[in-house]
Computed example of a mutant assay.
Amino acid sequence: MPTSPTPRAAPWWVERAETLLDTKDLRTMGLGALWELFERFSFVKENVESDLLLIDVQARPELQALWAALEERALSVSEALDAAGDEVTQQLRSGVLTAAHFRERWEGFGFTEAEGRASTAADDWLEGLLRISRITTGQNRPPFGQVNMASRAHRISDFLSLINPGKRDTVYDLGCGNGKVAITVAASSSARVKGVEYGQTYVESARRTAKRFALPNLEFIHADVRDVDMSDGTAFYLYFPFWGEVAKAVARVLGGIARTRDITVYASGPRHDYGEHFLEQVSQGALCLAPHRMDFSDVMVLRSAAFA
């Protein structure tokens, strides 16, 4: 007697799709929750190749309806996310949402790590508003550049608390990627903010995002950081954007600025082939190193030694 063929196991995405379709009413969800849901939909759609999907549907025709429902629901989530973000955007553009209130709003969501996710409620809200994924590979990345990994909200909050930037300040975000830090700092303060980025696709993305908010105190510079005149800067933010000779050159430039004016450098990254170049400026008397803080052990806060 011939044996029956072994039933083909359901593709990995089926269970995820069924779970995503069984979510609550989008009208009851806030901006951060919508972003978290949007990313979950995006993960499934981006990781199911069209050729493999065709094979799945040929083996189990009923999956065609499931995939169609998934795409329709993903579109609804995207539209709801746009609507929630547009509301905040209009408040920023009109001045109804001041810089202080904007900062209070995103910080108010908190920095507790979500279970099973490398994110917090504050990050979900900011990234949903900006439509910026935390990790992007981008294009045109130089040999000395990192894969873009957006800074966590807790780190941005720490930077703002330490610097307390005002109208007389110019903040540089060096290696700004898609612009999460630069846009958030510009919307949360009255300081002039300049994001510097080598990757063209990153800069274009950051400029598109910034254009929505029409922040007069924000600009993005597409350039090799070594070619940028940063002499007007009072605060510099670096989240391990580069290493080697570029890190050494930037540290040397910042050390030179520190000898002429009072600046603060907020540099996060490993000591080897990155932090060591800033510490060299400390040993040469240009910068002084502030004490480490337990929550940010990878951060070096450096200030002009002559003005300390």
Rank of each mutant, 00 (worst) to 15 (best):
A33T: 14
R73P: 01
P216W: 02
L254P: 10
A186T: 01
Y274R: 04
S189V: 01
A153N: 13
R208M: 06
H292A: 13
E104T: 11
R27W: 06
S157M: 07
L126G: 13
F159L: 12
G256Q: 03
Y198I: 11
M230P: 02
D229M: 00
R271D: 15
A249W: 15
D124L: 10
P291A: 01
H272R: 09
A306K: 14
N178R: 09
R252E: 15
G138R: 05
P241G: 06
G179N: 06
G166P: 06
D124V: 01
S157I: 04
Q200Y: 08
T209E: 07
S304E: 00
R93K: 15
F296D: 12
L254C: 13
L162G: 02
L130C: 08
L215R: 03
S231K: 07
A290C: 13
A68R: 07
V44Q: 01
A214E: 12
V14Y: 02
T120W: 11
E72W: 14
A17G: 01
F213V: 12
T120A: 13
A267N: 00
V77S: 03
F43V: 12
E280M: 05
L75R: 12
Y198Q: 05
A114P: 04
L97Y: 12
M149H: 13
R131P: 14
A214Y: 01
L162Q: 06
F159V: 13
A121S: 06
D173Y: 07
P270Q: 13
T234I: 06
V57E: 10
P241S: 03
L54P: 00
A153F: 11
D262C: 04
R207Q: 03
A74E: 02
R152I: 12
